[in-house]
């Protein structure tokens, strides 16, 4: 009589493992489709920026409000964080949990530095009167760059969450899947930033 009970317990464990595995495969594609829909949000913001980027309404233009050395610093932070995240993912594939957490923490610090510099830039602009209310150009500038900054901020929350989860459970199957989604999210934000620093800042200054 004890044998069927034992078998039933084994079968239950086996089924759980199967379900999680199947869900993991679909998660990557689903998350990719989310990222693509996020790309469409940014595409519409870039389109609006393209249309409104010369509507200064007598207010300051890109040459007066952009400090390229600050943008270069910010770009270095975000590109650096993309590279450190790649190193973290390599550590994950080598099954080294401590190293993964180390690179993830460095990525988080670089991301926090990025958000810090961006907030500093925004407060400088507001201090000289270049607020979103000033002109259509400044409205879309704050909306586009702010939406990207908000994404990075949520990425930071996710990084902190993963640091805690890695500390509690290590490199489990679920944590690997989450880290891979976070890695895609973070690299995606870096790609959006390429568009921002090229079309908003560099094009704005040479115009």
């Amino acid at each position: 009589m004890s044998n069927p009970v034992l078998n039933a317990a084994e079968v239950r464990v086996y089924h759980q493992a199967e379900v999680e595995h199947g869900g993991g495969g679909a998660t990557m594609l689903g998350f990719w489709i989310y990222l693509m829909s996020d790309a469409l949000i940014f595409a519409s913001l870039f389109a609006v920026f393209g249309v409104l980027s010369r509507n200064y309404a007598g207010g300051p233009g890109p040459k007066q409000v952009f400090d390229l050395s600050l943008v270069a610093l910010n770009t270095a932070f975000l590109l650096g964080s993309s590279i450190t995240f790649g190193l973290g993912m390599q550590a994950m594939e080598a099954d080294r949990a401590g190293r993964t957490r180390f690179w993830l923490a460095i990525t988080g610090l670089l991301g926090a530095a990025f958000v810090g510099v961006e907030l500093h830039e925004f407060s400088n602009l507001v201090a000289i009167g270049a607020t979103p209310q000033r002109s259509a150009f400044l409205s879309i500038f704050f909306t586009l760059v702010g939406t990207h900054g908000l994404h990075v901020t949520f990425g930071l929350i996710w990084i902190v969450t993963m640091l805690v989860q890695l500390g509690q459970r290590g490199l489990t199957e679920a944590n690997r899947r989450r880290l891979m989604c976070l890695s895609m999210f973070w690299h995606f934000l870096d790609i959006i930033w390429i568009g921002v620093f090229t079309f908003v800042y560099l094009f704005g200054v040479i115009r």
Partner: peptide
């Protein structure tokens, strides 16, 4: 676990 995870990992990770 490596064998099961490699199925999902293979989708997202290239060479060093």
């Amino acid at each position: 676990p490596r064998a099961t995870s490699s199925h999902a990992v293979a989708a997202g990770h290239g060479s060093k």
